[in-house]
Nucleic acid binder design. Sequence first.
DNA 1: TATCAGTGGTTATTACTCGAGCAACGGAAT
DNA 2: ATTCCGTTGCTCGAGTAATAACCACTGATA
Lengths: 144, 144
Amino acid sequence: MVITRATEYAIRTIIYLAKQPRNEIVLKKDICRTQNVTPAFLTKILQPLIKVGIVSSQRGVGGGFLLAKDPEEINLLDILQAEEGELNLNHCLVDDDVCERDKHCSAHEVWQEAQNEMIKVLCRHSIADLVKIEKVKVESLGLG
Amino acid sequence: MVITRATEYAIRTIIYLAKQPRNEIVLKKDICRTQNVTPAFLTKILQPLIKVGIVSSQRGVGGGFLLAKDPEEINLLDILQAEEGELNLNHCLVDDDVCERDKHCSAHEVWQEAQNEMIKVLCRHSIADLVKIEKVKVESLGLG
DNA sequence: TATCAGTGGTTATTACTCGAGCAACGGAAT
DNA sequence: ATTCCGTTGCTCGAGTAATAACCACTGATA
């Protein structure tokens, strides 16, 4: 299992924020209520997203959270790496010096290739895309 | 980090076995010495491979391990899944009922796509391929 | 301007699970 | 009896998931 709960909640949260009118500040408790996360945990999850500039926050009365970037400019890899750090299939991919077997280990290249393919997919889909897909899904549910 | 040490040692071991003359029985301690694994840990690692029929074993004097399948017929996904169980990027991919959000969760499809791409790569390379690649690597090291 | 309620920010702690490895004993083959 | 592998259970450490206590900022208002 690669994706943690934190990453999953983070993605839900960002999609939720992306659905709000642009520049509208959203309360933490509203995110919690709609996305089924506890406030304490959501606090922890949002901090890395703020650090990398995906979300911005406003303290004090009337404060809350909002997207700091255009949904077109955010992809799933950005969020995953903000929450979990660099994505690495195997420790020998962390950097070229970690594994002294690199020189003759043939599996190394396969891990690298698999990781690259995975990253390509995660980069290909922006949050804006996902919001569109959700709208279509919700509509088709309404019809069915 | 998706790949565990057990999987990595398992792959090393299988490549080692594949390099031996066909049907030659190899002692556990020879595997340990050449692949830098402790006997106790290797014991644990080999059992799942035996269970799924990749490796077979022989007890008693003159016993040991050998490949039960043609190296052409073994790929990295086989080994990985023998050691770690079904590969799943996220818990919502385990089966369609786990995540009650499936119906409207757009990320689900991205995880599925990323996982499929990864699996494709892991299936594409047989142990026989890896052995060939290692030979080439070793030769080029000898020249350098 | 002092203050207070409403907000997010930071840090520490807990419980739990899983990866990694070890060791002791059991069972089969010769 | 000896030489092998097989099974089981254990420990230790790291990482996930979540909680809680306390801190810092903002803005309204007394």
